[in-house]
């Protein structure tokens, strides 16, 4: 009986392992047609023509990378700022409650972020933010063109809100785990509290922060609904951040159910496969960094 129970739990643990392998296998197996038809150039070509069945994923890869990078640019400083505030300045009970509230941000379903995106953020971007950027920074190609409201920048903004909790939660934990002696040593040298943070704590927490950033990046790369609802769905790469774009996840959300030919379906699955590989690498890096430190990521 003892061995039976052990075997039972073993089988279920094995199922998890099998599931991971199954995901990789299914994505590979069901995209072979596209792999054969386009080869590696699939990743570097910009064309997306379902009628002629000529496909390349560059627009989506570009959109995914650019929105995620912008989101990190916005979210990392804020996320770290919040973490410093919660770890150093806020009293313990307040810090606990705030940390819980910020984790709630991560629990809000992404479709609700999309809803807020469409009806709140897009109008603000169209009427206020984008005209402002065009007026003052319009000489840069990055901020040219009409203010649609939707587009790469809007998607990045929504993404940024969604990934702040991932950065804050872990950064706060590593900041709080900085040894007391380390802080006191800096204080004894006459450092102000901020100098303690900057010189004694942040360097100590560096790798933890890096891990949290990669974790947030992994989340941003694969985020689907919120981005799909505000990105604008344009299959051309445009230099302007205000222009509509497309991401890998968004094209899957929009076109998968409508793909009518086998090659079209396989092509979309190959986009999924590429996304799978990218997120595995990014999450792998995060795990490598955080695994050494025994900090539990939020799921």
């Amino acid at each position: 009986m003892d061995r039976l129970f052990r075997a039972l739990t073993f089988i279920f643990a094995l199922a998890v392992l099998a599931l991971a392998a199954l995901i990789a296998f299914e994505l590979y197996r069901n995209s072979v047609l596209s792999q054969k038809a386009f080869g590696w150039s699939f990743l570097t070509r910009q064309i997306w023509d379902p009628v002629e069945e000529d496909f390349g994923a560059l627009t989506f890869i570009y959109g995914t990378l650019i929105t995620s990078a912008l989101a990190l640019l916005l979210a990392v400083p804020v996320g770290i700022g919040v973490a410093i505030f919660l770890a150093e300045l806020a009293p313990k009970p307040m810090s606990e409650v705030c940390a819980f509230l910020i984790e709630l941000l991560a629990a809000i379903p992404s479709v609700i972020y999309g809803l807020i995106g469409i009806f709140v953020i897009v109008p603000i971007m169209r009427v206020q933010v984008q005209p402002f950027l065009i007026k003052h920074l319009g000489f840069l190609p990055l901020f040219k063109g009409p203010a649609y409201g939707i587009g790469l920048l809007t998607a990045a903004l929504v993404l940024a809100i969604m990934i702040v909790p991932f950065i804050t939660t872990i950064t706060r934990e590593v900041l709080m785990s900085v040894p007391r002696e380390q802080k006191e040593a800096a204080m004894a040298l006459g450092a102000t509290r901020w100098e303690v943070v900057r010189m004694a704590m942040l360097p100590y927490a560096r790798s933890g922060i890096a891990g949290s950033v990669f974790l947030a990046l992994g989340r941003a790369l694969g985020e689907t609904m919120a981005v799909t609802m505000v990105i604008g769905n344009s299959t051309h790469i445009q230099a302007s951040l205000l222009a509509p774009g497309y991401t890998m996840a968004a094209v899957l959300a929009n076109e998968f159910a409508e793909a009518d030919s086998e090659l079209y379906t396989h092509t979309l699955i190959e986009v999924g496969l590429a996304l799978f590989v990218i997120t595995i690498i990014v999450n792998g890096i995060a795990r490598l960094i955080l695994g050494r430190m025994k900090v539990a990521p939020v799921s």
Partner: peptide, 20 residues
């Protein structure tokens, strides 16, 4: 493996359920 699955974008999980 659990970490890998946890990191897979949910839309990609949808594709796998679709093919299966």
């Amino acid at each position: 493996a659990a970490d890998v699955i946890n990191g897979v974008p949910s839309i990609v999980v949808g594709i796998v359920a679709y093919t299966l």
